[in-house]
Design a protein around this nucleic acid. Structure first.
Lengths: 241, 241
DNA sequence: CGGTGACTTGAGCATCGTCAACATTCGTGG
DNA sequence: CCACGAATGTTGACGATGCTCAAGTCACCG
């Protein structure tokens, strides 16, 4: 049960052994990407679906004046473009942020899968809907929270998502991001991102050890960031509230 | 062809007469809502799908410290919650911004529709994907553009969307928003939203006549806002670029 | 070791928020 | 139809947050 896709989809509903086996089969043909490589570029019309198995990828867009906005991270178990089957043209690009293993899956395989495995079909739809929910939460984050809480909120989300796929320690997880990339995610300048990180560090809310984010007290960070995991729609969080 | 849903979906692909007839039938049971009424509240699990036929609605969320973030507008022809069939709990609320006609459609009707009318099924999926694309563009808008350009970008988008459903004049459209609501959408204070609007007015980019937004020179406003309609994925915009 | 990219810090400035006062519009009841 | 009150819009003054420019420092890699 170390397959991140299986772990992720299990957060929605239990999967049968047959479902699990079928999902594991998907990740036969893994392609290795270096860091900072485009997987799909704007205006492309990709014929395959891409699944992150290890590493980290992101969606981004560049504005006319050359600024970049990153608006999604794809951690292991996440699909990059499950949703673009119909839109004839990509309106954004997808790139790796770290060396990553990416699986290429033909559209036909996905169609086949959703036809023959209803539980998987539901789970994939769920994953797509959660992607939308994350986007809405990010917009709230950008619009309503000051820089340091905004970063704290991102860390909380990534901690939970990494934990879901078994990639978090009790109080830390790997986040191979530069501060430039963090700034482009949060809509901040690199200088201000740096200072906000410093503030979080000095408040004892996070420690940064190389590429690892250490969160000494997860509950305290969640409170600081006004983080509520409900928007991730995991089974285990549904009881609360 | 005055039905906004038909007009909207036609922006994706031509619809047959049978498809059109079926869509028009949907809007039999119209419910009238006053302005500022919740259609669906957070934590609800709505059993019906809601479709805006006239007026204006929005999605929003409230943070712990009482701030509101609006992260989507639903204009006539837009569905409110096509996507929530699977997520057992709403992670945000939906409310009217103006007096609106809302159609209640049972989930079963939607399922029936997508089973028997493949062209409609595709078009509805397209509409859902476009909603996601709009969200990504909004995030870019929030993160990368200053207040006045941000507002200008919103006006451009709404102009195009209203035009798509036949609700825009050559140089204007109705936008029944208060500046408070605009500020909550853009992540600004009301005071600053007011001043940014004033800047746009004094630059001759927009005029505000009551609840009507007048855009004397649409191309100039688009240039100012760095607006490119490609993310709306309408047929008519696909040729460019 | 030398160089390149990432990180850090300071200083000054621009953007945006808060508080407060006032003006205008709109709906409602008399 | 008018008068009133409440909500919305407008403006000024000031402070906070965040950006730009610039000068380093640090870590990593050839």
């Amino acid at each position: 049960m170390t397959n991140p896709l299986v772990r992720k989809l299990s957060a929605f509903a239990p999967l049968s052994d047959a479902d699990t086996d079928r999902l594991v089969q998907l990740s036969k043909h893994i392609k290795r990407f270096d860091a900072d490589k485009d997987i799909i570029r704007e205006n492309n019309n990709p014929s395959n679906v891409h699944l992150v198995m290890s590493g980290l990828a992101c969606r981004y867009k560049t504005t006319a004046d050359g600024n970049r906005q990153i608006f999604a991270y794809m951690v292991p178990g996440d699909f990059c473009d499950l949703h673009v089957a119909l839109l004839t043209r990509m309106d954004h690009s997808i790139a790796t942020l770290a060396p990553s293993d990416i699986v290429d899956i033909p559209h036909t395989t996905i169609l086949d899968l959703t036809d023959s495995y209803p539980a998987i079909a539901k789970a994939l739809l769920w994953a797509t809907l959660v992607d939308g929910a994350i986007l809405r939460e990010w917009l709230t984050n950008m619009g309503q929270r000051p820089a340091d809480a905004r970063i704290a909120h991102l860390f909380c989300e990534l901690y939970v998502r990494m934990e879901t796929v078994g990639l978090a320690e009790r109080d830390s997880f790997e986040l191979p991001l530069t501060q430039i990339e963090l700034a482009d995610t949060m809509g901040l300048s690199t200088v201000h991102a740096n200072r906000s990180l410093k503030a979080l560090r000095e408040a004892g809310l996070v420690r940064i050890e190389g590429k690892k984010i250490v969160i000494p007290d997860v509950e305290r960070l969640k409170a600081y960031a006004d983080f509520d995991p409900i928007y991730l729609h995991r089974r285990q969080d549904l009881s609360a509230r």
